[in-house]
Simulated scan of single mutants.
Amino acid sequence: MIEFELNGEYIPLIQLLKATNLVQTGGEAQIVVSEGEVSYNGQIDTRKRLKVRKGDVIEFRGQQVRVI
């Protein structure tokens, strides 16, 4: 599991995927989110501008990211 330390109130899901190196580009992040490959707190979520906050867990291709 990857732990990502959040410095602000939230981070957009696409930026989180890039910041944790799960995708290479913002364009790739938008595609995988819109195609339903990303799980947010156990549910598939296709919102590209989803605000991820402390305590949230993201899953993508077998990797988990917990926001702390």
Rank of each mutant, 00 (worst) to 15 (best):
K51P: 06
L6V: 03
G42F: 04
R49P: 08
K48Y: 08
E5F: 09
L22W: 05
V52K: 01
L22C: 09
Q15W: 12
Y40W: 13
Q63A: 14
V38E: 02
G8P: 02
Q43W: 08
E5S: 07
T25C: 03
L50M: 14
V57E: 07
V57M: 12
G36M: 05
M1C: 11
E59H: 09
G8N: 14
E59P: 00
L50N: 13
V57P: 01
G36K: 02
L22A: 10
Y40D: 02
I2F: 04
S34D: 11
L6D: 00
K54M: 09
Q63D: 14
G27T: 02
L16H: 09
V33K: 00
Q63V: 15
V38G: 00
D45A: 09
V23A: 07
S39C: 10
Q15M: 10
F4T: 11
I2K: 07
P12F: 06
I31T: 14
T46P: 02
G36Y: 04
E3G: 00
F4N: 03
I11W: 02
R61C: 02
R53Q: 15
G27C: 03
V67F: 08
V23Q: 05
G55W: 03
L17F: 10
L22R: 04
F60I: 07
V65T: 07
P12R: 15
R47F: 09
L6R: 09
Q24V: 13
V67R: 12
E28N: 10
E59G: 05
R66M: 07
Y10D: 04
E59D: 12
E37L: 10
L13A: 03
I44V: 15
I2T: 05
L13F: 04
E3Y: 06
G26Y: 07
V32W: 04
Q24P: 04
N41A: 10
V32M: 06
T20C: 15
I68F: 12
D45T: 11
V65S: 02
V65E: 01
V52E: 04
G27Y: 00
Q30I: 06
I44E: 08
V67K: 12
Y10F: 15
V23W: 03
R47G: 02
D56T: 06
T20L: 13
G55H: 08
V32R: 05
K18W: 03
Q30R: 15
E59M: 05
K18E: 10
A19Y: 10
Q30V: 05
V57Q: 13
R49C: 07
Q30F: 06
A29G: 11
Q64W: 04
I31V: 15
A29M: 12
R53A: 06
Y10T: 09
E5C: 00
G26N: 08
Q43C: 05
V57L: 12
E37I: 00
G27V: 01
T25L: 06
I44Q: 09
E5Y: 09
